[in-house]
Each structure stands twice: as C-alpha cells, then as structure tokens.
Amino acid sequence: MLNPKLKFCGNHSQQDISLAVQSRVSYIGVVFAESKRKVTARDVDKWIKAHPLQPKQKLVGLFVNASISEIASVLSHVSLDIIQLHGNETVEQVNMISKQVTVPLWKVIHHEPQAWLKMEQYAPFVDGFVIDSKVKGQWGGTGSTFDWSHLPSYIETGKKLARPTFIAGGIQASNIAELLAYQPDGIDVSSGIEENGKKSFERMKQIEERIELYE
C-alpha cells in the first residue's frame, strides 16, 4: 500500500512555515480567507524566501469564495503551486477561475449526504479534491471530523475521476490509523498539528510516524 500524501495546512507565521519546511510533508498550506489563521501574500512571500520549500514540497493557497481579481492579487505577490477553493464556489465559478489561472485547482467538498456526487460536476475543471467537515459558520480548520463511514464513496469517486482525494477535518495522531485503513490519496491536517494556536513540530512528527508505520 502506498503512503498517502500529507498536507499541513493553516500555517500562519514564519515559525509555522519554518517547521513545515523541515518536515517530510508534501504540501504546505496557507489561508488567504477570513480565519484565525489568515495570512497576507506579502508575509507568505517573505516567510518562504527565509525558509525555502524542499524540492518536492508544494505551496497551497486556500481561498473561500474569492473573486478572480483577489486570487490574481495574491498570485502577483507569492508563487503558489496549487489553489484550493474551500468555499461554496459553483461549478460555473470554478470553470471561470480555471480559465483565468494556470495554477492547478483543488476543490473542497464539505461532507453532507451524497456530497460525493458533486465531484463529477467539478472534475472537468479541477485537479484534485479535499473532503472536509461541514461546520456551520466555519469553512475549515475546525478540528471536527465527519462520519468516516462515507469515505469509500469519496475515495472511489476520486479514483474513478482520476483526481487525488484528500481527507480533512479533525485528523490527529490518535485517529489517523483509523483513517489510513480507508487508503485515502492524501491527508490534510491543520488543528491536529497545533498546540496553543501554533504549529508543533512534535505533533507533525507524530503524524508522520503514524503514516510510515503503514509503508
């Protein structure tokens, strides 16, 4: 069984970026939407210049219902490898964004009954999916899991569409073994690697060690 790709999201300080870059993670995420973890493009650019990503690491910028001009403004200041659309962007809006930017797009699907059916609609315009919990008034980073009994439907749909599917929402060292049993393409962790609101290198290592047990 191949190990899933790992993404550490919600990095919101130079210290966070420094720790993520030192880890063995494949994707490092920053949030450009209203959030306690919101960052500015200029800050991220400064942090990345101080702590360059490893050759195989990619920078993911998370947006929520952003306009094309807002996304373009961020891209003018910092080079993103992936744009993650984490709001309730419609298929039409995602299509428009895909025509305006050359950066690969990921679309979040917030879990609700039969939400995996939406994946087929977005698939022509995106390069991957993130499945996250649906929490009223919040878009992500809540520390809440959803009912993982639905995971096979998301994962199988992603495979059918040939789009990598990451699982997010309340993932931490204590429950990652249960998640790995479903063999997701990727795992997206934010609050699960935090301590007192800051990223913890020890918690990052715990997640990495749990995954490596399944090589």
Rank of each mutant, 00 (worst) to 15 (best):
Y27S: 13
H51A: 07
G61L: 01
E70F: 06
K46A: 14
F63H: 10
F63Q: 08
V60M: 03
Q54F: 15
I71F: 00
S73G: 14
K36F: 04
L59H: 07
S67E: 14
L59M: 07
G29N: 08
L75Y: 07
T40D: 06
K46P: 05
P55K: 05
L62K: 05
S73F: 10
V60Y: 00
L53H: 07
K56W: 15
S69H: 13
Q54V: 14
I48W: 00
P55C: 11
K46C: 10
V60S: 06
A66F: 01
R37V: 11
K46D: 12
K38D: 09
K46Y: 10
I71Y: 00
V30W: 01
F32R: 03
A33Q: 02
V64Q: 00
V60N: 05
A50G: 09
K58G: 12
A66V: 12
N65T: 10
S35L: 05
E70Y: 08
I48R: 04
S69P: 08
I28C: 06
K36W: 04
I71Q: 01
V44T: 07
K38L: 07
I48T: 12
V39R: 01
A41E: 04
I48C: 03
F32M: 03
R37Y: 08
Y27L: 15
I71N: 00
P52W: 02
K46Q: 11
F32L: 03
L59A: 14
V64A: 00
P52F: 01
V44C: 03
E34L: 11
V44D: 01
A41V: 11
G29H: 04
P52L: 02
L59C: 11
V74P: 08
K58L: 15
S67C: 10
Q57P: 07
I68C: 04
P52V: 11
D43I: 13
V64H: 01
V31H: 02
V60L: 03
R42Y: 12
T40W: 03
V30K: 02
L75A: 12
T40C: 07
K49D: 14
P52A: 04
R42C: 12
